[in-house]
């Protein structure tokens, strides 16, 4: 079984020194996607916790640098801004996977400082509110009937963590992951917009993203969360994939 939780991680450029006395100023957190996705959330978590703990003088600035689930930000922070000591980059298990696969170009994991894991998140299968799919069973049946009619959107490319979630779902239902239609967006925010517009039918993203977006009024529904137990809060009514008979 593959670990389901996506780690939210923070990264610092290698040349930078993190140790400093007193509150830091001009801090910045780079979210390597467009606003509204999981990276954004990671940065906002760092922002609020650092401010509450009085570690920073002003609220940390959040910068968005979309491209390749962190690839562009990774290259930028190492090549262009090695001297920015107070800049951190949000990272996820998904970006880690791409880094390991060499999709980040010439740099590897030794070029940065890995600072801290901020939290963990669980995968989620999300559809539009008006979608006819009500459960995982509906989804699998629809994919079985015609894989070209059920397009998966995700915040990353084929091989990424979001793709893994979709592929695992397909495999647990006895389908060939290669027959799936899969579209890569720049972060979960964009994918959810496309979901609401009906351009993709399913989004295999993260539970926290879905929760944030629903809070902001997005018309979406979560079919399943990929955790061992049901989550708390807004998603408490959403059954886990396991409950619905899919061991992912």
């Amino acid at each position: 079984m593959i670990r389901k939780a996506a780690l939210m991680t923070l990264v610092l450029a290698f040349a930078a020194a993190a140790a400093a006395a007193g509150p830091l100023d001009k801090t910045e957190c780079i979210a390597p996607a467009k606003p509204g996705g999981g990276f954004d959330l990671t940065c906002k978590l760092a922002q609020s916790s650092l401010l509450e703990g009085k570690f920073v003088a002003d609220p940390m600035r959040i910068t968005y640098m979309p491209g390749g689930i962190g690839a562009v930000a990774y290259n930028a922070i190492i090549a262009q801004r090695p001297a920015d000591a107070n800049t951190i980059v949000a990272f996820s298990g998904g970006s880690l996977l791409n880094l390991a696969q060499g999709k980040f170009g010439r740099y590897n994991e030794n070029d940065v400082h890995w600072l801290a894991a901020v939290g963990s998140d669980f995968g989620a299968i999300i559809v539009a509110e008006k979608s006819p799919l009500k459960s995982m069973k509906d989804l699998v049946a629809a994919v079985k009937a015609d894989p070209t009619k059920v397009v998966f959107g995700a915040g990353g490319t084929v091989g990424s963590q979001d793709w893994m979630k979709a592929a695992l779902t397909a495999r647990s239902a006895g389908l060939d992951p290669k027959s799936m239609r899969f579209v890569a967006f720049e972060g979960g925010g964009e994918a959810i917009t496309a979901l609401q517009g009906g351009h993709v039918q399913v989004y295999s993203g993260d539970a926290s993203e879905a929760e944030e977006q629903m809070k902001a009024g997005a018309k979406i529904r979560v079919l399943a969360v990929m955790s061992d137990k049901r989550l708390e809060g807004r998603l408490a009514d959403v059954p886990t994939a396991k409950e619905q008979g899919f061991d992912i």
Binding site: M65, G68, I69, N75, A76, N98, Q101, G105, T157, A184
Partner: peptide
């Protein structure tokens, strides 16, 4: 110019790090 975000391939950067993110 820059890193192709889908495949991780550098395009038209001429090996220059400053062009790696476009």
């Amino acid at each position: 110019v820059g890193l192709d975000s889908n495949s991780g391939v550098y395009r038209f950067t001429g090996g220059n790090v400053h062009l790696s993110d476009g």
